[in-house]
Design a protein around this nucleic acid. Sequence first.
DNA 1: TTCACAATTTAAATCGTTTTGAAAATTTTG
DNA 2: CAAAATTTTCAAAACGATTTAAATTGTGAA
Lengths: 349, 349
Amino acid sequence: MATLKDISEELGLSPATVSRALNGFPEVNAKTRDKVQAAAQRLGYRPNRTAQRLVTGRSGMVGMIVKIRPDLSADQTFVEILTGLTAALAARDTDLVLAVDQDPDPVAAYRKMLERDILDGFILNAPVPQDPRVDFLTQQGVPFVMHGQCRKDADYPFYSIDNQSVTAEAVGLLTALGHKRIALLNGDLDHAYSADRLAGFAAAMRQANLRVPGAFMVAEAPSENYGYSHALAMLAGQHGPAPTAFICASTLIAAGVMQAAADRGMSIPGDVSVVAHDDALPLTRAINFSPALTVTRAPLRDACTPLANMLIDHINGAEARDLQTLLRAEMIVRGSTGPAPKDGEQPWL
Amino acid sequence: MATLKDISEELGLSPATVSRALNGFPEVNAKTRDKVQAAAQRLGYRPNRTAQRLVTGRSGMVGMIVKIRPDLSADQTFVEILTGLTAALAARDTDLVLAVDQDPDPVAAYRKMLERDILDGFILNAPVPQDPRVDFLTQQGVPFVMHGQCRKDADYPFYSIDNQSVTAEAVGLLTALGHKRIALLNGDLDHAYSADRLAGFAAAMRQANLRVPGAFMVAEAPSENYGYSHALAMLAGQHGPAPTAFICASTLIAAGVMQAAADRGMSIPGDVSVVAHDDALPLTRAINFSPALTVTRAPLRDACTPLANMLIDHINGAEARDLQTLLRAEMIVRGSTGPAPKDGEQPWL
DNA sequence: TTCACAATTTAAATCGTTTTGAAAATTTTG
DNA sequence: CAAAATTTTCAAAACGATTTAAATTGTGAA
């Protein structure tokens, strides 16, 4: 493998000039730069990253720690994120070091990784309310970026969708269609995004002067079966008058809801409307539902490049305040929502 | 962070001696070694991995490239392997760099990683028959270890279970119980392990003088639904006389089979016997089946530590021939297998 | 021509280890 | 006790880049 010195000897220049020429420093003569770049090309020069790291103090690697839940539910979204993230990081010459965390202590795995002293920063995912990792890493002075938002007054970089508005907009759409009994099939409340969606839902319903009994706001890790079983019970009137609309935390849940409606012989959107949040995972595509699903859409994959860039910029010194993105999900109205049925316009009391 | 030089100055020794003392070289005085180790402890010394890497030429990182199939089916086993692997590698001070591969060319992602020139070796998973990655990496002179076996005459390190014996032993158990019509619900034949299991199955059945029509040897990516639908069709006699026993590539498939039997009002093991291969994933535990599942058992997790150690040993110069493990899966007979039903002892013709 | 000033280039230090070859200290041998 | 053999330690050279401070070259003004 050709080194800087090889090039410098080949051209009768000093390694310093060659280094500057290749790294785009302004003080190098245009002709010299061309010669150097040509030679680098010709000799197949690739900088030795280890040497660069030694002198710059940067490792060129960032870490991500995956929390394994007892049910192994890390899978689909995790693979999606991983795919986009490794690609986006590679584009900025950065590698992703992965570790799996099984420790009950939420920061233990981070501490262990830090001790190995090879990472420039972390990508945090799946924030919980008041996430303890934030304080820990801040205190350690380690750069990180959060995928999702766990505090209003964050002074660290994050990329998140506005989860309160996700449910609020869904409520807005449904109430405009005359729905009064709207159920929420939320995700696991351990996750910050679920807590936000619950807050958004509750606020919007309150504003619309509608009450929702607790039995119609459920929260569990998303699965088709979860959607199916709860929707079935609600539609059967087990907890009181059946809802005329469902807001689902994921398309997977919505699939279960629609199956439940079908099993009870109810039509969508005639008898029941369904709105879901759509992460745009390749497997459950909202547009393939029948009828096509009305969603708030925010592709998970879209988060990857900004996350990677924010983290690297932050490592390079950019201010956290300038690296905060709160995105509004896009509302896409399709066939699964319609006017509330005539006989279902009575609100819950 | 304390450096070697800090220690050497603290003790009035040269960095060379300190380095030797810490790395267990024999030519250093016992008393000196103690002093050095105490000082290292006291100052919280941790070797700078980057500096080590620069001088040794090793990066202390190995790569794993995950192939994303269109159906995202990488998930459960992938997470299991990842968990064990990162832990086992960490124990030997090695990090795992992960990349996700979407390129149709099976070696493109490896080539790209190699160009970045930061890896000491690779862990290959999910081998296909005649896996092209083997030739590529061999030719590039890059160390790797294979999880699974794709060639008899391998001259590279691998860790695998004997997949031919997996199905052969299952056949042995079932024929000893008097079964003559045994169906195979295999995994996707793109995977080497499925090909081997098919070979083992076919050979064992031939040896038992039993014929199996093609319709009773199916191969698909494991899922509960796959097991359910095929078993249902077979038990309904759609392809000829129903099998009296099923050999399943995974416990997930077996769950589907048992559901199908139940839906047809058939009892296990009275009417139908079921054997599965058990990777011992935490989610679908064979012992929780009802009746408990007879399996060939080989925990995926068990592979992780050997894989990590073999790769690192190989990188350190150990011979490939000494780093090959072919493990026999353990047969565990439980309640899902029993004597063939009296009226089902007629073989397929 | 000479001086100041900018534009280029260079030598050398640096990052924190490992490792080579030589020197110093210690022990053994004659 | 001196010489030889053996331990033990050290100084310095790697590894391959970046970067500081100094040196060189080139330009235009006085």
